[in-house]
Every structure is written in structure tokens, then in C-alpha cells.
Nucleic acid binder design. Structure first.
Lengths: 234, 234
DNA sequence: AGAGTAGGGATTGTTCTACAATCCGGCAAT
DNA sequence: ATTGCCGGATTGTAGAACAATCCCTACTCT
């Protein structure tokens, strides 16, 4: 009995300590934020020396941070040329949405983990989106939308899926930074969020999945159009 | 016309160059192989100085390699204590299989990309497993089984999903290293592989998904038992 | 004897310096 | 105008150094 408690406590402590931020992690957070905020446009080269000095870390530490962001697909490393902010194209949109379709629809259809807490998270995201729309705070609407989809995947109850979804959502933010006028992008989908949440509350998983599928394919086409148009006009 | 060719060529060249192995990548491959081969048992601590000297790279480069493997969940970093080979427990099995259920079943159900080439890859993996069984080459059977599931996910046509599946399969190898007598684990599932492939050839996606679901839940329970038994007997 | 505590050795986290390999831009030559 | 070559700049990698942290041991105190 005591043994069990001790091992679980030790396990938790280890996880907590793993979360604790090392310098490289903090440097990674700084760069990541600058990219997702749109301060660093896609295609921008990130020279190691300058960036390291700007952030106030050594070049080695910065390289570890950059490697991490490369693993998150936010940056791309071209050997002997440096890392650049990823420049997503229409193919990337296609690929990301294929992954999202499989994961999100799959999480919705597999109902084994749909407990009250997870469903409440969906409702919260819907409410958050509604409030943000009323306040006409479009960045907040975008954020609420991401929360909704994060909550959808969380229905599956797998931390590994959650992590992968986090990566995909980070790439989505890159897409949005790439298109013109992303303010109006999210609003039309808020109603469908509510519909999906309602279906899931009632246990109608198939219907929820159908709405979601329709939702995702339309958003995909819209994004793909935006990115191909941008690619052709420059 | 020429412009198009040039840009596509440049894009391909960039991807190829990204694949090109740097020293850190090679060091990562070395460690990764030692872990998946089972030469480095789970829980083993990996001191940086000794490892760097053994592989013949500097400690800096080795750290980059280790960070990469931490991102792949093969190793775990405990700040100020070093990296250790991940020691999966029953919870990890549960989590991995939840992710696999969503991704693999999702890839099977979403038939939009099931073309001839991808179906042929399934058949090849089935044949590979049959041959290996006849030769009683159990490591080869395990390998064929992984190829089959990789091919299943490839049905979705998303390189990002493929990459995630690669991570999950690497974790599966950790599981196998952890259990006693993994030789007999894979053989019972080979028939189901054939059944799934046949269903998909005939376009019966729902039936294929049902078999796969049953398959995965049984394998999960078996693995979970094995890991909890091991945890209690030490 | 057992619990608490201080010290010391070892390992990690981080920085700095150095240099070879590679890439890019510009200049010269044809 | 194209090709070829050179020099500057940046990356990839190595190595040494040191503070921070951890773990283990020996010691002290009750």
C-alpha cells in the first residue's frame, strides 16, 4: 500500500519537474510566441548569432530551442543555411486537414471517454466564442475556436493525441498569419460548434461527426483558396 | 513554364537537403537503434559525457541528439538528473492505444484516399507477415506487423499522421522490450491483418474498422496485463 | 539505533571560444 | 549574358570551463 503511494508520488514529482522550464525551453517559447503572433513572418531567416544575443542566451542553448521548434514544424531547418519560419503552402493545408479529419472525427465517433467533464469543456469553448463574437474581439474568436477543437480531441482521452493536436493548431496559426483578413474566417463556424456540442450532449455522435466533417472540408477549401491565391499573386 | 519547373525543383531540393543527416541526427539514430533493439533497457540512465565519447561526438551535439529523442518520447529528460530510457507503464499503453484507435480506425473509415497503391502496400505487409511466420522469424513477424499498421495510417494520405504513427510505433517497440516473451505476441493477429486488407479491397470500410477495433482492444489488454504484472513482481 | 544534517563528488545546464564546412553574393573573364 | 571563382558570412561541431543541482556518505545529535 505504502509502496503504491510512494511510486505514484514520485512519478508525479518527476512529471512536474519535467515541466519546469529550462533556459532552452524559455528561449523556444519566446521565438514561438513571436512567430504565432505574426511578428516573425513566414520565410524569415533566423540567424543564430543575432537571435541568441537578442534573447540573451548562448548560441548553443538557442540551437536547442530552435531544434525544438523545428520538431514542432513551426520552423524549418535547411542544413548550412539556417532555420527559417515555415512557409506553408496549399499542400500543407491539405495535409493538416487530412490529419485533423482523421483525429477530430475519430475522437468524436469513439465515445468511450465522453464524460461530463470533457463535454463541459466543449460548452465552455462555445460560450467563449459567443462572448467574443458579441464583443467583436476577433482574435478572441479565433482563440475560442481553437479551444473548441482542442476540447474535441480531448474527448478521446489521450495525452499523445492532445499533443499532436497542439502541433496541428500551431500550424493553423501559421496559416492564418499567411492569409489576408483572417478576422472573418472563424465567425461562420461558431454556430456549427454549438451544433456539434449539442449533438454530443445528446449522444448523437454520428450526427456530430457529419457536421464536423462538413465543417472541416469547407474551412479547408477556404484556406486552400486563400493560400493558392497568395502564391500566385507574388 | 520554366518558372514552375524551377520552383518545384527548388522545393524538392530543399526537402532532400533537410533529410540529409547531420552529425546530431546520426548520433540520435545510433541511440535510437540501441534503445529499440533492446540493448538499452528502459530506465537506463544515459550520462552525457560517456555517451558522447562512446559515439564520438561532442557533448553539445549529443545533447541535440538527446533532445530529439526526448521529443520522440523514447527518452525522458529529468532536469538536472539527465535523460533515461523511457519506462512505459500501463497508463502509457492505455494512452498509446487510445491514440492508435482514433488514428488507425479513422484512417480506415475515411476512404477518400484509398487508392490502388496504398492498398497494395497493405497486401505487401500481409504477405511479409505470412512469409516471416513460415520461416518462424519472430522479429520479422513483429516488423511486418508494424509495416501493416503503418500502411493502414498511410491510407489517410497525410505525412503528418504518418509521422505521428511512427512515434507511436517506436513506443510500441519500447513496450515489447518491456514484456517477457514477445515472440508469440504478434502471430495471432496476422490473420486479422489479412481480413482487414480483404475488407478494404472490397470497399467494406466499416467491417474493416470493426475488425481493427477488436484487434486493437485485445492487443491493448494483453499488453496492459503484461506490463502491470511486471510492475507488481518487482 | 535512528533521524536529521552537512559536506563532497559527480552530472547537468549553460556559456564562451574556436575552427572547418558550406553557402551566398559579387566580381572577373570569356 | 553566362560561367567560374573568390571572399565574407553563417552554420555545424568540438572543446573547455564553471555554476547549479543532485545524490550519496559520513557525521552528529537525541
Amino acid at each position: 500500500m505504502l509502496e503504491d503511494v510512494l511510486t505514484t508520488l514520485e512519478k508525479r514529482r518527476r512529471q512536474e519537474r519535467t515541466v519546469l522550464s529550462t533556459t532552452a525551453d524559455r528561449a523556444a517559447s519566446v521565438v514561438r510566441e513571436q512567430v504565432t503572433e505574426g511578428a516573425l513572418r513566414s520565410g524569415t531567416r533566423l540567424p543564430e548569432a543575432a537571435l541568441a544575443q537578442a534573447i540573451g542566451v548562448s548560441r548553443n542553448t538557442l540551437r536547442e530551442a530552435l531544434s525544438q521548434l523545428v520538431a514542432e514544424r513551426i520552423l524549418v531547418r535547411e542544413p548550412h543555411r539556417g532555420v527559417v519560419v515555415a512557409t506553408p503552402d496549399a499542400d500543407d493545408v491539405t495535409d493538416v486537414y487530412r490529419a485533423r479529419l482523421v483525429i477530430e472525427v475519430g475522437a468524436v465517433l469513439d465515445g468511450t471517454m465522453h464524460d461530463e467533464e470533457r463535454l463541459a469543456a466543449l460548452d465552455r469553448a462555445v460560450a467563449e466564442g459567443r462572448d467574443a463574437t458579441e464583443a467583436q474581439d476577433w482574435p478572441a474568436v479565433a482563440s475560442a475556436n481553437q479551444h473548441f477543437h482542442r476540447a474535441l480531441v480531448a474527448l478521446a482521452g489521450s495525452s499523445r493525441l492532445d499533443a499532436e493536436m497542439e502541433l496541428l493548431l500551431a500550424e493553423m496559426r501559421l496559416f492564418f498569419n499567411e492569409m489576408t483578413g483572417p478576422e472573418s474566417f472563424h465567425r461562420p463556424y461558431l454556430d456549427q460548434n454549438a451544433t456539434i456540442a449539442a449533438h454530443l450532449r445528446a449522444g448523437r455522435r454520428a450526427e456530430a461527426a457529419a457536421v464536423l466533417r462538413d465543417y472541416l472540408t469547407r474551412a479547408r477549401d477556404q484556406l486552400r483558396d486563400a493560400l493558392t491565391r497568395r502564391a500566385s499573386t507574388r
